[in-house]
Design a protein around this nucleic acid. Structure first.
Length: 487
DNA sequence: TTTTGAGTTGTTCGA
DNA sequence: GTCGAACAACTCAAA
């Protein structure tokens, strides 16, 4: 039954991309309010802004919701699941539960922050307390400004301005005691959202990831103990676990950058792991900085998710080439390091950062296919798909974005392979048909003498493709295309 | 207002 | 094999 006394009703805690209990400002505020808490998650077409999350991202979301529900149940609560439209769902739950407050953490994607502002106003108009709190960033996008009061477009001064604000605050602890409502509103089962694929292709995902706050904590521990001290070099090696692998956890808010910051700022567990230098730490923190920068840029230049930040790129002569695009997507370009990356992505829902740059450079510079096709594919296949990061990353590579790579920076897939996968371990792992090729040829199988090819059981054009372009020629064509922008 | 220094991740070419 | 310069010019951010 609805509760009659206004200000006495339960609080709705609206979960979005903040699927955790620790360092959760909205939850902490709800706890302080000392009313029963009803945690809600709403799945709806508008919940990811402009575009629905892709299949990989939905797989992750399902697992993460299960974890969050488990954590809530261990504290006497549960996660109420609904399907959108969002505003109608919230209103209906408020009505049936007598709740009179809604708390949530802010998101900064343009479509979402607009929509959230409308919901906030509508709730207040109907006498509901609506309170929002800082989301999963160290610095909110509007906080950081140049001396002129403008948003930043260059990373280095942006990050300098962030750092000038001092250390991020300490993370909030997970609340110990939560008050349950006397009655629970109806809820869907998580499975009813049908986030998991109908055909089970997620075995590689399960083998690679453990979604949820606990998995995130394990990942941090692993990174801190085993990789952080060698981060400056190790981060570039796709054949080993040199990076933090926190991107999907951060995207879904299972962990906050503030928690990461403070966890890595502490000395490692006694007797474990190498000593971590300040330099190694700042190197990694700058990566958190890029995440901040991506949110900053998308917030202030909301059109960039589908249009270049730099206007002159409107006339860039992108090519349409459905076959080449498909070859790229499937990992069948004939360039081993590119194909390895695209297959790692397909199998695990993730790709090493260094390799993301290589495959992105290949799509935009070698194939001259627009970055938007790449961004769309990543959006659908990455478990860490994030509008701000994806947009910034692709525009950076294509040269049309904030603080973009200079146009002449065109990756050579063979050199990149030799430099960052020097033993061919990564290529052989993800392109098993090349597993027996001698190291000398593993990054350029087309140069292999035919007797070596047959001894390695490689049949070019049959079980592994010949290169779909000549890199030297494509590079030339790309430079020409960039020159055409100038006139 | 004008000036100045600088700008994540590369490659190639020629000495 | 190694090294430095060239690859364009532009625009950002602060002084």
């Amino acid at each position: 039954m609805p509760c009659n006394k206004m200000a006495d009703g339960p609080s709705l805690l609206w979960f979005r991309c903040d699927l955790r209990l620790a360092d959760h400002p909205a939850l902490t505020a709800a706890v302080i309010r000392s009313r029963p808490i009803i945690p809600v998650f709403i799945w709806g077409p508008e919940e990811d802004g402009d575009e629905q999350p892709g299949a990989a991202s939905r797989w992750w979301l399902h697992q993460s919701l299960v974890e969050l529900d488990r954590d809530l149940r261990s504290r006497g609560l549960r996660l109420v699941i609904r399907r959108g439209p969002t505003q109608e769902s919230l209103t209906e739950i408020l009505k049936t539960t007598g709740a009179d407050a809604v708390y949530w953490n802010r998101r900064y994607e343009p479509a979402l922050s607009r929509r959230d502002a409308q919901i906030e106003q509508a709730l207040r108009r109907s006498g509901i307390e609506a309170q929002t709190f800082p989301g999963n960033v160290l610095f909110e996008p509007h906080e950081i400004r140049t001396k002129e009061g403008n948003p930043y477009r260059v990373f280095t001064p942006f990050w300098k301005a962030c750092r000038a604000r001092g250390e991020p605050g300490k993370p909030l602890p997970a609340p110990r005691r939560l008050i349950a409502p006397s009655q629970w509103p109806r809820s869907l089962e998580i499975a009813e959202l049908q986030l998991e694929p109908k055909i089970d292709w997620a075995a590689g995902f399960r083998a690679t990831w453990r979604p949820g706050a606990r998995g995130a904590a394990k990942q941090i521990e692993r990174f801190h103990a085993q990789a952080l001290s060698a981060y400056a070099r190790g981060r570039d090696r796709p054949d080993s676990l040199g990076t933090s692998r926190l991107s999907p956890h951060l995207h879904f808010g299972e962990i906050t950058p503030r928690q990461v910051w403070h966890a890595l700022g502490q000395p490692g567990r006694k007797g474990r792991g190498a000593k971590v230098s300040t330099a190694a730490r700042s190197k990694f923190f700058a990566e958190l900085g890029w995440r901040e920068f991506a949110h900053h840029v998308l917030f202030h230049f909301p059109y960039t998710s589908d249009r270049p930040l730099r206007d002159d790129f409107k006339k860039f002569p992108w090519r349409r080439d459905a076959r080449a695009l498909k070859a790229w997507q499937r990992g069948q370009t004939g360039f081993p390091i590119v194909d390895a990356g695209m297959r790692e992505l397909w199998t695990t829902g993730w790709m090493h950062n260094r390799v993301r740059m290589i495959v992105a450079s290949f799509l935009t510079k070698d194939l001259l296919i627009t970055w938007r096709e790449g961004a769309r594919w990543f959006w659908d296949t990455l478990v860490d798909a994030d509008l701000a990061n994806n947009t910034l990353g692709w525009q950076w590579t294509a040269g049309c974005g904030a603080d973009a790579a200079p146009f002449f920076r065109i990756f050579n897939p063979v050199l990149q392979g030799r430099k960052f996968d020097p033993e061919g371990v990564y290529v052989r792992r993800w392109v098993p048909e090349l597993a027996k090729l001698p190291l000398k040829f593993v990054h350029e199988p087309w140069k292999t003498p035919s007797e070596v090819l047959s001894a390695s059981n490689v049949r070019l054009g049959d079980n592994y493709p010949r290169p779909i372009v000549s890199h030297a020629e494509s590079r030339h064509a790309a430079l020409e295309a960039f020159r055409s922008l100038r006139s």
